[in-house]
Design a protein around this nucleic acid. Structure first.
Lengths: 205, 205
DNA sequence: ATTATCTATAGATCTATAGATAATGC
DNA sequence: ATTATCTATAGATCTATAGATAATGC
């Protein structure tokens, strides 16, 4: 039972994740994926039948990370709701920093294959809704206690998503706007992270 | 001098704008563009030589709208700096509402063809920098007058871009998060617009 | 026997061009 | 004469599969 058996499928999947993330569905080549995985082209079709089905696997793998990254730290972390919202923003930003090509991939797919996206999201939505309700409840309590203003959590999450995710799509453009040379990418993104926390804190005041 | 002469090139370009915006470079087909433009496929190559060159024309056409949409109303409109910032946000949002597929197109290109983007932006940057300086100056004055807090205009523009543009990439996902059915798209986006103005106002307080 | 892998190639699709023909402007 | 258009097709590229062969597990 050589490990290469089970590995082949996984290696193809990993190569596919890389290729599809970088080039999108249309730009990706099954032959390149096979080459990257170190198998013959026929193997790709043996395991996944079609490019389409392989893409679906990749997309599902990616989507599992998308929805809950902000909420989980807010729900689970320690401290006041305000502190946990900051933690949630930072955790989400750090996650994106480690998965820089995720956003573009998700949004191109969301645009080019809406059905696939719908299906994936419907699977994830119930858990998400539950967490959201919990956070809304806590925000309401904090509001009554005078800690923060009235907060509509879904809208707040949208704000956070905007501020956190967008720089990963637009950083080269933003850096031109802000007059940063492209080499100082890390520095710029660190500033954006702080700016987002600040903006959201003022928003919920 | 039948009008169809000059028109052919224009018709191809318009068809190309549509096709490339919707499907990206890799997904677009020169044959489809020609069909949409109502000319034979050979004509496309006659006028634009290659798919690549045609794409470049499309990209340049799109880019001219990208940079200055927020700043122009801020610089030109009447009223206090605070009022004009609101106007700028709203004008930018309305512009995007009328050009819904622009953001995804720009960011996929920014990713897949960074050189092309760099070139286009360098052309637009000088004017932009000038306007930016002007607005920074006004914000500083308003700050000294106690109307607003200290504002870093480039960072503020990044915030506005995040909040304004991102919903046009992510609205289907956001609407699921916010519990909106997809049919109420217009209503949802109207809410986002108000939310963004509100968030930015609090940010600069 | 079943599962995994390879070689070779069919068949579809797409960009680009060659070469002929029609329209236009001088 | 030059410019615009068409037909036809070359040539490249890409997905998918057929069919043979090797490896594995019972």
């Amino acid at each position: 039972m050589d490990k290469s058996e089970k590995d082949t499928e996984q290696r193809i999947l990993e190569a596919a994740i890389k290729e599809f993330s970088l080039k999108g569905f249309d730009g990706a080549r099954t032959a390149s994926i096979a080459a990257e995985a170190g198998v013959t082209h026929a193997m790709l079709h043996y395991y996944f039948r079609t490019k389409e089905k392989l893409f679906e696997c990749v997309f599902k793998d990616k989507m599992q990370y998308v929805l809950d990254m902000v909420l989980v730290p807010i729900v689970r972390a320690e401290g006041s709701i305000k502190e946990r919202i900051c933690k949630g923003i930072e955790a989400h930003f750090d996650f994106l920093m480690a998965n820089k090509d995720l956003p573009l991939f998700v949004f191109t797919t969301l645009h080019s294959r809406p059905e696939m996206f719908r299906e994936a999201v419907n699977g994830l939505a119930p858990v998400f809704r539950e967490q959201l309700k919990e956070v809304q409840c806590e925000c309401d309590k904090a509001h009554e206690a005078g800690e923060i203003g009235r907060v509509d959590v879904p809208m707040l999450l949208c704000d956070i998503a905007c501020l956190n995710v967008f720089p990963f799509l637009a950083s080269p453009m933003m850096m031109v706007v802000a007059g940063y040379p492209q080499e100082r990418y890390g520095e710029f993104m660190e500033m954006r992270k702080r700016e987002t926390v600040e903006t959201i804190l003022k928003r919920i005041q």
